[in-house]
């Protein structure tokens, strides 16, 4: 069942069009990654979804049991990229305050605060002022305040980008835990994080949707036969690239130091052709691997195009 529907959403800042008529929808119970390089328009999109920023044009609709709701905010939980709290409050006070603002009664807010502080693992620091919290603790506190009112949709802006590996692991573990009950939309520029916990991917680049769909589907439909060749040095790689670039079996060549990643039409034919070229140009091949392109290749292709 559709939970969120975004239709032709655009945002124009003075000179710069940050988001260009994007449309997508999110089904209930899914975990969706909004993927894209820095500056692609992820944060702008998220700000419009949460109501912090007014769209220039377009429509955002949230459905509850098939009915559109007028005010999205009671059903949303939001964690910004760099959450800022009142530094003079304690962690416990802030989560409680957030819960009460979201409409919980005092007792209910108090009870759930304890629950969530424990889930995110900062109950020991709950008595301390937030001013003394580390980045990782603030992120956890941010999760607790976003989830205390049991939102239908949890929106996270780069939830793990600024964390160290342990903090990152912990936050992903918490997300894994809550995705049973809540639909999640989170933005990231790291493909790996998206692959780890998401069902669907929306890849945006320069304010436009480049690819969207379920992870499985994208993996299959965008997977192309690919050959990875490692040569002796950069000069040889360059020479080989020039030699094979215009062959009919080659679709696309990406080079990085002494390694070439060649997207081809057909593996066997291409491999034979490349070998011939290598022999002809006296290029030493250290390693040759035939396989299929990964999501990362797709991501790089879209981002660099």
């Amino acid at each position: 069942m559709t939970l969120l529907k975004v239709d032709q959403l655009s945002k124009q800042f003075k000179q710069h069009q940050a988001v260009k008529k994007i449309s997508f929808s999110i089904d209930e119970g899914r975990c969706v990654a909004l993927l894209g390089p820095n500056g692609a328009g992820k944060t702008t999109t998220i700000h419009m979804l949460t109501g912090l920023l007014r769209p220039t044009s377009g429509d955002i609709q949230l459905y509850l049991q098939g009915k559109q709701v007028a005010d999205r905010r009671p059903h949303l939980g939001y964690l910004p990229q760099m959450p800022v709290f009142y530094s003079w409050m304690t962690g416990r006070e802030f989560v409680q305050y957030a819960g009460q603002l979201a409409g919980l009664s005092r007792q209910e807010a108090e009870r759930r605060t304890e629950e969530w502080l424990e889930i995110v693992g900062i109950q020991d620091a709950a008595k301390r002022r937030i001013g003394g919290y580390s980045g990782g603790m603030k992120q956890r506190l941010g999760l607790a305040q976003a989830l205390i009112h049991r939102p239908k949709l949890l929106i996270l802006d780069e939830p793990v980008s600024a964390l160290d590996p342990i903090g990152r692991r912990d936050v992903l573990r918490i997300l894994e835990q809550i995705r049973q009950e809540t639909t999640i939309l989170f933005s990231t520029h790291i493909l790996h994080d998206a692959e780890e916990i998401c069902d669907d991917i929306i890849l945006i680049e320069q304010g436009e949707i480049a690819v969207q769909g379920s992870l499985e589907h994208i993996r299959q439909s965008h997977s192309e036969p690919m050959i990875m060749i490692e040569t002796l040095n950069e000069a040889q790689a360059k020479a080989l690239e020039i030699a094979i670039r215009n062959k009919p079996y080659v679709h696309h060549v990406a080079s990085e130091h002494q390694t070439l990643r060649v997207t081809v039409s057909q593996l066997e034919e291409a491999e034979r052709g490349i070998m011939t070229e290598a022999v002809q140009h006296q290029i030493f091949i250290r390693k040759l691997e035939a396989g299929h392109s990964t999501l990362e290749d797709l991501f790089m292709k879209v981002v660099r195009a």
Binding site: H47, T50, G51, L52, D71, R73, P74, L76, Y78, P80, M82, P83, V84, F85, Y86, A98, L101, A102, G103, G142, Q145, H149
Partner: peptide
Amino acid sequence: QSGVTSLIFTKPV
């Protein structure tokens, strides 16, 4: 300016 409003105003206030 601090950005704490982005936590407050995403709640139904």
